Computed example of a mutant assay.
Amino acid sequence: MSVSAGNSIVLDNLWKTYGSFVAVGGVSLSIEAGKFCTILGPSGSGKTTVLMMLAGFSDPLRGKILIDGDDVTRLPPQKRDLGVVFQNYALFPHMTVQENIAFPLKMRGMNAAEIKLKCSQMLDIVELGSFSARYPAELSGGQQQRVALARALVFEPRVLLMDEPLGALDKRLKAALQIEFKALQRRMGVTVVYVTHDQEEALTMADQVVVMNGGKIEQCGTADALYDEPRTEFVAGFMGDTNLIEGVVTGKGGNGEMRVEHPTGRTILVHNGTTGVGDQVSVSLRPECVSLFTREGAPPEEPNAWNGRVANVISLGDALRYTVVIGENRPSLQIELDAKVSRRGPHDARFSQGDEVRVHWNASDARALARMKKGGEMAR
Protein backbone atom coordinates (compact mmCIF):
# COMPACT_ATOMS: atom_id res chain seq x y z
CA MET A 1 0.00 0.00 0.00
CA SER A 2 1.28 3.45 -0.86
CA VAL A 3 1.33 6.24 1.71
CA SER A 4 -1.13 9.00 0.85
CA ALA A 5 -0.45 12.68 1.30
CA GLY A 6 -4.10 13.03 2.32
CA ASN A 7 -6.58 15.53 0.97
CA SER A 8 -7.73 18.81 2.47
CA ILE A 9 -11.42 19.47 3.14
CA VAL A 10 -13.31 22.75 3.18
CA LEU A 11 -16.94 23.04 4.25
CA ASP A 12 -18.26 26.46 3.30
CA ASN A 13 -21.47 27.68 4.99
CA LEU A 14 -23.31 24.34 4.88
CA TRP A 15 -27.03 24.35 5.68
CA LYS A 16 -29.45 21.44 5.98
CA THR A 17 -33.08 21.71 6.99
CA TYR A 18 -35.97 19.28 7.39
CA GLY A 19 -39.09 21.40 7.07
CA SER A 20 -38.74 24.14 9.68
CA PHE A 21 -36.08 22.23 11.63
CA VAL A 22 -32.50 23.42 11.05
CA ALA A 23 -30.26 20.35 11.37
CA VAL A 24 -27.10 22.19 10.29
CA GLY A 25 -27.01 25.97 10.26
CA GLY A 26 -24.09 27.61 8.47
CA VAL A 27 -21.21 25.24 9.24
CA SER A 28 -17.83 26.33 7.87
CA LEU A 29 -14.74 24.24 8.54
CA SER A 30 -11.25 23.64 7.14
CA ILE A 31 -9.41 20.35 7.67
CA GLU A 32 -5.77 20.07 6.66
CA ALA A 33 -4.60 17.18 4.49
CA GLY A 34 -3.55 14.14 6.48
CA LYS A 35 -5.18 15.27 9.74
CA PHE A 36 -7.47 13.28 12.02
CA CYS A 37 -10.51 15.49 12.62
CA THR A 38 -13.17 14.47 15.12
CA ILE A 39 -16.63 16.05 15.02
CA LEU A 40 -17.95 15.79 18.55
CA GLY A 41 -21.38 16.54 19.97
CA PRO A 42 -24.48 15.15 21.66
CA SER A 43 -27.33 13.45 19.81
CA GLY A 44 -29.10 15.93 17.56
CA SER A 45 -26.15 18.33 17.36
CA GLY A 46 -25.84 17.93 13.58
CA LYS A 47 -22.53 16.05 13.49
CA THR A 48 -23.81 13.01 11.55
CA THR A 49 -25.74 15.25 9.16
CA VAL A 50 -22.47 17.03 8.32
CA LEU A 51 -20.80 13.68 7.68
CA MET A 52 -23.67 12.50 5.46
CA MET A 53 -23.41 15.67 3.38
CA LEU A 54 -19.66 15.21 3.08
CA ALA A 55 -20.17 11.60 1.99
CA GLY A 56 -22.78 12.59 -0.59
CA PHE A 57 -25.63 10.68 1.06
CA SER A 58 -27.49 13.90 1.84
CA ASP A 59 -27.65 17.11 -0.22
CA PRO A 60 -27.07 20.46 1.52
CA LEU A 61 -29.70 23.15 1.18
CA ARG A 62 -26.86 25.52 0.38
CA GLY A 63 -23.12 25.82 0.82
CA LYS A 64 -20.10 24.11 -0.73
CA ILE A 65 -17.95 21.04 -0.07
CA LEU A 66 -14.41 21.12 -1.43
CA ILE A 67 -11.98 18.18 -1.33
CA ASP A 68 -8.44 19.16 -2.26
CA GLY A 69 -9.89 22.19 -4.01
CA ASP A 70 -12.43 20.22 -6.07
CA ASP A 71 -16.08 21.16 -5.63
CA VAL A 72 -17.87 17.87 -4.88
CA THR A 73 -21.07 19.39 -3.47
CA ARG A 74 -23.35 17.86 -6.11
CA LEU A 75 -21.32 14.77 -6.98
CA PRO A 76 -22.93 11.39 -6.18
CA PRO A 77 -21.22 9.33 -3.43
CA GLN A 78 -19.52 6.91 -5.82
CA LYS A 79 -17.81 9.80 -7.62
CA ARG A 80 -16.24 11.29 -4.49
CA ASP A 81 -13.69 8.51 -3.89
CA LEU A 82 -14.29 8.39 -0.14
CA GLY A 83 -14.00 5.50 2.31
CA VAL A 84 -16.84 5.19 4.82
CA VAL A 85 -17.04 3.12 8.03
CA PHE A 86 -20.30 2.95 10.00
CA GLN A 87 -21.06 1.74 13.52
CA ASN A 88 -22.82 -1.40 12.24
CA TYR A 89 -19.80 -2.32 10.02
CA ALA A 90 -22.10 -3.12 7.00
CA LEU A 91 -20.05 -6.20 6.06
CA PHE A 92 -21.47 -8.66 3.54
CA PRO A 93 -22.32 -11.76 5.61
CA HIS A 94 -22.09 -14.15 2.65
CA MET A 95 -18.55 -13.01 1.76
CA THR A 96 -15.28 -13.99 3.46
CA VAL A 97 -12.98 -11.39 4.99
CA GLN A 98 -10.87 -11.40 1.82
CA GLU A 99 -13.94 -11.03 -0.40
CA ASN A 100 -15.31 -8.16 1.69
CA ILE A 101 -12.03 -6.27 1.41
CA ALA A 102 -11.75 -7.02 -2.31
CA PHE A 103 -15.26 -5.80 -3.11
CA PRO A 104 -14.50 -2.08 -3.69
CA LEU A 105 -11.52 -3.02 -5.86
CA LYS A 106 -13.68 -5.26 -8.06
CA MET A 107 -16.21 -2.45 -8.40
CA ARG A 108 -13.40 -0.28 -9.72
CA GLY A 109 -12.47 -2.88 -12.35
CA MET A 110 -9.06 -3.73 -10.94
CA ASN A 111 -7.40 -6.90 -12.25
CA ALA A 112 -7.29 -10.07 -10.11
CA ALA A 113 -3.53 -10.03 -9.47
CA GLU A 114 -3.57 -6.44 -8.19
CA ILE A 115 -6.65 -7.13 -6.08
CA LYS A 116 -4.92 -10.11 -4.44
CA LEU A 117 -1.80 -8.05 -3.71
CA LYS A 118 -3.68 -5.08 -2.23
CA CYS A 119 -5.91 -7.31 -0.09
CA SER A 120 -2.89 -9.18 1.24
CA GLN A 121 -1.15 -5.93 2.13
CA MET A 122 -4.24 -4.55 3.85
CA LEU A 123 -4.83 -7.77 5.80
CA ASP A 124 -1.28 -7.50 7.11
CA ILE A 125 -1.81 -3.87 8.10
CA VAL A 126 -4.92 -4.69 10.17
CA GLU A 127 -3.32 -7.93 11.41
CA LEU A 128 -6.01 -10.26 10.06
CA GLY A 129 -3.95 -12.27 7.58
CA SER A 130 -4.87 -15.57 9.18
CA PHE A 131 -8.60 -14.73 9.12
CA SER A 132 -8.94 -14.09 5.37
CA ALA A 133 -11.14 -17.17 4.73
CA ARG A 134 -13.52 -16.58 7.64
CA TYR A 135 -16.97 -15.05 7.42
CA PRO A 136 -18.06 -12.01 9.46
CA ALA A 137 -20.19 -14.13 11.81
CA GLU A 138 -17.04 -16.03 12.80
CA LEU A 139 -15.25 -12.84 13.94
CA SER A 140 -15.35 -10.81 17.14
CA GLY A 141 -16.71 -7.28 17.13
CA GLY A 142 -13.22 -5.81 17.09
CA GLN A 143 -12.16 -8.05 14.19
CA GLN A 144 -15.26 -7.10 12.20
CA GLN A 145 -14.44 -3.44 12.75
CA ARG A 146 -10.93 -4.01 11.40
CA VAL A 147 -12.38 -5.67 8.29
CA ALA A 148 -14.70 -2.69 7.76
CA LEU A 149 -11.73 -0.35 8.13
CA ALA A 150 -9.61 -2.41 5.73
CA ARG A 151 -12.40 -2.41 3.14
CA ALA A 152 -12.70 1.39 3.42
CA LEU A 153 -8.94 1.92 3.03
CA VAL A 154 -7.94 -0.72 0.46
CA PHE A 155 -8.71 1.46 -2.57
CA GLU A 156 -6.71 4.36 -1.04
CA PRO A 157 -9.58 6.87 -0.75
CA ARG A 158 -9.14 10.61 -0.77
CA VAL A 159 -10.73 10.84 2.68
CA LEU A 160 -11.89 8.30 5.27
CA LEU A 161 -15.23 9.04 6.97
CA MET A 162 -16.14 7.23 10.19
CA ASP A 163 -19.52 7.47 11.94
CA GLU A 164 -19.49 6.23 15.56
CA PRO A 165 -17.39 3.20 14.49
CA LEU A 166 -16.57 2.05 18.03
CA GLY A 167 -19.92 2.74 19.67
CA ALA A 168 -20.94 -0.93 20.02
CA LEU A 169 -17.67 -2.17 21.53
CA ASP A 170 -16.75 -2.66 25.18
CA LYS A 171 -14.51 -0.09 26.87
CA ARG A 172 -11.31 -2.14 26.84
CA LEU A 173 -11.57 -3.09 23.16
CA LYS A 174 -12.57 0.45 22.25
CA ALA A 175 -9.45 1.85 23.94
CA ALA A 176 -7.22 -0.63 22.09
CA LEU A 177 -8.78 0.13 18.70
CA GLN A 178 -8.49 3.88 19.25
CA ILE A 179 -4.72 3.50 19.46
CA GLU A 180 -4.66 1.15 16.44
CA PHE A 181 -6.79 3.49 14.31
CA LYS A 182 -4.64 6.50 15.12
CA ALA A 183 -1.41 4.62 14.36
CA LEU A 184 -2.83 3.31 11.07
CA GLN A 185 -4.01 6.78 10.06
CA ARG A 186 -0.54 8.23 10.67
CA ARG A 187 1.09 5.39 8.76
CA MET A 188 -1.15 5.78 5.72
CA GLY A 189 -1.42 9.57 5.82
CA VAL A 190 -5.12 9.56 4.99
CA THR A 191 -7.36 12.45 6.07
CA VAL A 192 -9.97 11.21 8.56
CA VAL A 193 -13.28 12.77 9.58
CA TYR A 194 -14.53 10.89 12.62
CA VAL A 195 -17.95 11.50 14.18
CA THR A 196 -18.60 10.58 17.82
CA HIS A 197 -20.34 11.69 21.00
CA ASP A 198 -17.53 10.18 23.11
CA GLN A 199 -15.20 12.86 24.50
CA GLU A 200 -12.54 10.29 25.38
CA GLU A 201 -12.28 9.21 21.74
CA ALA A 202 -11.80 12.82 20.68
CA LEU A 203 -9.14 13.46 23.30
CA THR A 204 -7.30 10.24 22.42
CA MET A 205 -7.32 10.31 18.64
CA ALA A 206 -7.90 13.71 17.10
CA ASP A 207 -5.48 16.30 15.73
CA GLN A 208 -8.46 18.64 15.39
CA VAL A 209 -11.68 18.57 17.40
CA VAL A 210 -14.88 20.25 16.26
CA VAL A 211 -17.55 20.57 18.96
CA MET A 212 -21.09 20.95 17.60
CA ASN A 213 -24.27 21.93 19.38
CA GLY A 214 -27.66 22.78 17.92
CA GLY A 215 -26.49 22.46 14.33
CA LYS A 216 -23.61 24.90 14.74
CA ILE A 217 -19.91 24.74 15.60
CA GLU A 218 -19.31 25.85 19.19
CA GLN A 219 -15.52 25.67 19.04
CA CYS A 220 -12.78 24.13 16.94
CA GLY A 221 -9.16 23.40 17.86
CA THR A 222 -6.85 20.81 19.35
CA ALA A 223 -8.17 18.55 22.09
CA ASP A 224 -5.84 20.21 24.62
CA ALA A 225 -6.99 23.71 23.64
CA LEU A 226 -10.66 22.83 23.97
CA TYR A 227 -10.10 21.15 27.32
CA ASP A 228 -7.85 23.85 28.80
CA GLU A 229 -9.36 26.91 27.12
CA PRO A 230 -13.08 26.38 26.44
CA ARG A 231 -14.85 29.44 25.06
CA THR A 232 -18.38 28.53 26.10
CA GLU A 233 -20.21 26.85 28.95
CA PHE A 234 -21.25 24.07 26.61
CA VAL A 235 -17.70 23.23 25.50
CA ALA A 236 -16.42 23.36 29.09
CA GLY A 237 -19.09 20.91 30.22
CA PHE A 238 -18.92 18.64 27.19
CA MET A 239 -15.12 18.29 26.97
CA GLY A 240 -14.69 16.41 30.23
CA ASP A 241 -15.92 17.15 33.74
CA THR A 242 -15.92 20.66 35.11
CA ASN A 243 -17.28 22.73 37.98
CA LEU A 244 -19.39 25.71 36.85
CA ILE A 245 -19.69 28.43 39.49
CA GLU A 246 -22.10 31.26 38.72
CA GLY A 247 -21.23 34.87 39.44
CA VAL A 248 -20.94 38.42 38.16
CA VAL A 249 -17.73 40.11 36.99
CA THR A 250 -17.13 43.00 39.42
CA GLY A 251 -13.69 44.15 38.31
CA LYS A 252 -10.70 43.63 36.05
CA GLY A 253 -7.03 44.17 36.84
CA GLY A 254 -4.24 45.38 34.60
CA ASN A 255 -2.63 41.93 34.41
CA GLY A 256 -5.77 40.33 32.97
CA GLU A 257 -7.06 39.27 36.38
CA MET A 258 -10.82 39.31 36.86
CA ARG A 259 -12.88 39.39 40.06
CA VAL A 260 -16.09 37.39 40.02
CA GLU A 261 -18.59 37.68 42.86
CA HIS A 262 -20.74 34.66 43.74
CA PRO A 263 -24.33 35.31 44.97
CA THR A 264 -23.12 34.34 48.47
CA GLY A 265 -20.71 37.29 48.43
CA ARG A 266 -17.58 35.18 47.98
CA THR A 267 -15.01 36.53 45.52
CA ILE A 268 -13.32 34.36 42.90
CA LEU A 269 -10.14 35.49 41.17
CA VAL A 270 -9.78 34.38 37.54
CA HIS A 271 -6.90 35.02 35.13
CA ASN A 272 -8.73 33.76 32.04
CA GLY A 273 -11.80 35.21 30.45
CA THR A 274 -13.17 37.38 27.67
CA THR A 275 -16.14 38.87 29.52
CA GLY A 276 -16.60 42.40 30.82
CA VAL A 277 -17.50 44.06 34.10
CA GLY A 278 -21.16 43.48 34.93
CA ASP A 279 -21.45 40.31 32.85
CA GLN A 280 -23.08 37.25 34.35
CA VAL A 281 -20.58 34.39 34.01
CA SER A 282 -19.92 30.80 34.90
CA VAL A 283 -16.45 30.11 36.22
CA SER A 284 -15.23 26.81 34.76
CA LEU A 285 -12.84 24.88 37.01
CA ARG A 286 -11.68 21.33 36.27
CA PRO A 287 -11.91 18.93 39.26
CA GLU A 288 -8.21 18.00 39.00
CA CYS A 289 -7.32 21.68 39.55
CA VAL A 290 -9.03 21.78 42.98
CA SER A 291 -6.74 21.01 45.93
CA LEU A 292 -7.99 19.75 49.28
CA PHE A 293 -6.36 20.40 52.65
CA THR A 294 -7.11 19.77 56.28
CA ARG A 295 -8.14 22.93 58.08
CA GLU A 296 -4.82 22.87 59.97
CA GLY A 297 -2.66 22.47 56.85
CA ALA A 298 -4.64 24.86 54.68
CA PRO A 299 -3.30 27.85 52.76
CA PRO A 300 -3.71 31.23 54.51
CA GLU A 301 -6.81 33.34 53.98
CA GLU A 302 -6.84 34.34 50.33
CA PRO A 303 -9.17 34.33 47.31
CA ASN A 304 -10.06 30.91 45.95
CA ALA A 305 -9.50 29.27 49.35
CA TRP A 306 -12.73 28.29 51.10
CA ASN A 307 -13.81 26.08 53.98
CA GLY A 308 -16.14 23.20 53.22
CA ARG A 309 -17.35 19.74 54.16
CA VAL A 310 -16.90 16.48 52.21
CA ALA A 311 -20.38 15.38 51.14
CA ASN A 312 -19.43 12.40 49.01
CA VAL A 313 -16.43 10.28 47.99
CA ILE A 314 -16.34 8.18 44.80
CA SER A 315 -13.54 5.85 43.75
CA LEU A 316 -12.51 6.22 40.09
CA GLY A 317 -9.86 3.51 40.26
CA ASP A 318 -6.73 5.60 39.78
CA ALA A 319 -8.24 8.63 41.54
CA LEU A 320 -10.78 9.71 44.13
CA ARG A 321 -13.53 12.21 43.43
CA TYR A 322 -14.65 14.33 46.36
CA THR A 323 -17.78 16.47 46.38
CA VAL A 324 -17.27 19.35 48.79
CA VAL A 325 -20.14 21.55 49.99
CA ILE A 326 -19.19 25.11 50.81
CA GLY A 327 -21.42 27.47 52.73
CA GLU A 328 -24.45 27.37 54.97
CA ASN A 329 -27.09 24.68 55.32
CA ARG A 330 -29.48 26.48 53.00
CA PRO A 331 -29.03 24.99 49.48
CA SER A 332 -29.46 28.42 47.86
CA LEU A 333 -26.37 29.67 49.70
CA GLN A 334 -24.20 26.63 49.04
CA ILE A 335 -21.55 25.90 46.45
CA GLU A 336 -20.75 22.33 45.44
CA LEU A 337 -17.27 21.63 44.08
CA ASP A 338 -15.91 18.36 42.72
CA ALA A 339 -12.23 17.66 43.33
CA LYS A 340 -10.33 14.83 41.64
CA VAL A 341 -7.30 13.61 43.60
CA SER A 342 -4.83 10.97 42.41
CA ARG A 343 -4.44 7.88 44.58
CA ARG A 344 -0.68 8.36 44.18
CA GLY A 345 -0.83 11.47 46.34
CA PRO A 346 0.07 11.44 50.05
CA HIS A 347 -2.16 9.17 52.09
CA ASP A 348 -2.77 11.88 54.70
CA ALA A 349 -4.41 13.97 51.96
CA ARG A 350 -7.31 11.51 51.74
CA PHE A 351 -10.63 12.36 53.34
CA SER A 352 -13.89 10.73 54.33
CA GLN A 353 -17.50 11.78 54.07
CA GLY A 354 -18.25 14.45 56.67
CA ASP A 355 -14.64 15.68 57.04
CA GLU A 356 -14.11 19.42 57.37
CA VAL A 357 -11.68 20.56 54.67
CA ARG A 358 -10.37 23.64 52.89
CA VAL A 359 -10.41 23.88 49.11
CA HIS A 360 -8.06 25.97 47.00
CA TRP A 361 -7.26 26.52 43.33
CA ASN A 362 -5.07 28.82 41.28
CA ALA A 363 -6.69 31.70 39.45
CA SER A 364 -4.87 30.62 36.26
CA ASP A 365 -6.79 27.33 36.28
CA ALA A 366 -10.22 28.95 36.15
CA ARG A 367 -11.99 30.52 33.16
CA ALA A 368 -14.86 33.02 33.24
CA LEU A 369 -17.35 32.10 30.50
CA ALA A 370 -20.39 34.07 29.43
CA ARG A 371 -23.42 32.44 30.99
CA MET A 372 -26.07 31.30 28.51
CA LYS A 373 -29.80 31.63 29.01
CA LYS A 374 -32.18 28.96 27.85
CA GLY A 375 -32.42 29.30 24.09
CA GLY A 376 -28.75 30.12 23.72
CA GLU A 377 -28.68 33.88 24.39
CA MET A 378 -25.95 35.43 26.50
CA ALA A 379 -27.08 36.42 29.97
CA ARG A 380 -26.64 40.08 30.91
Rank of each mutant, 00 (worst) to 15 (best):
K252L: 13
R187M: 09
S342C: 04
L244M: 14
Q208D: 11
P263C: 09
F155E: 08
P230T: 08
V249M: 05
M95K: 15
I31K: 02
L285W: 06
H360E: 05
V85D: 11
G221P: 02
V270K: 05
P104Q: 07
F293Q: 01
S364L: 08
D71T: 04
P77M: 03
G276F: 02
I245S: 02
D59F: 04
G256V: 12
A175F: 00
Q87C: 02
P303E: 10
V27D: 05
F36V: 07
V290Y: 05
Y194L: 11
P157F: 06
N255P: 00
W306F: 15
G46I: 08
M372G: 00
S282G: 14
F57W: 11
L61S: 15
L75F: 12
T222R: 04
M205E: 12
R330Y: 06
A236G: 06
D355L: 01
D338L: 13
D207F: 09
F57P: 09
A236H: 02
I115F: 03
R158Q: 13
S45T: 08
I39T: 06
T17P: 00
Y227M: 03
R367N: 05
Q185H: 14
K374L: 13
T264R: 05
S342E: 11
R330G: 00
S352V: 07
L51A: 10
T264F: 04
E127V: 04
V313Q: 03
V154C: 11
G25K: 04
E156N: 14
A175Y: 00
L369E: 00
F86P: 03
S140L: 03
D241K: 15
V260K: 03
M52T: 11
R108L: 08
V249T: 09
A183E: 13
A150Q: 05
I245T: 01
L11R: 01
G276K: 14
E336M: 12
D365M: 12
A148W: 03
I326H: 07
E180G: 07
G44W: 10
Y135H: 13
V283K: 01
H262S: 01
G240Q: 09
L51I: 12
V325P: 00
D348G: 00
T49V: 13
Q334I: 11
G375R: 03
D348S: 12
E377L: 14
N88I: 02
E180V: 08
R186V: 09
K35S: 15
G308L: 04
T38H: 05
K182C: 09
V22D: 13
G69N: 10
R309A: 04
Y89V: 11
G278F: 09
E288D: 14
R186Y: 01
R309Y: 00
G19S: 07
V10R: 15
S8P: 08
N304I: 03
S4G: 03
I67C: 06
D163S: 12
S364R: 15
A202L: 08
V211H: 02
A298R: 14
L123E: 05
F238R: 03
N272R: 15
R62Y: 07
P331L: 11
Q185R: 10
T204A: 15
R151E: 06
V357K: 01
F155G: 07
V24I: 08
I31Q: 01
L226R: 02
I31M: 03
P230R: 10
H271P: 00
A152D: 00
E99L: 01
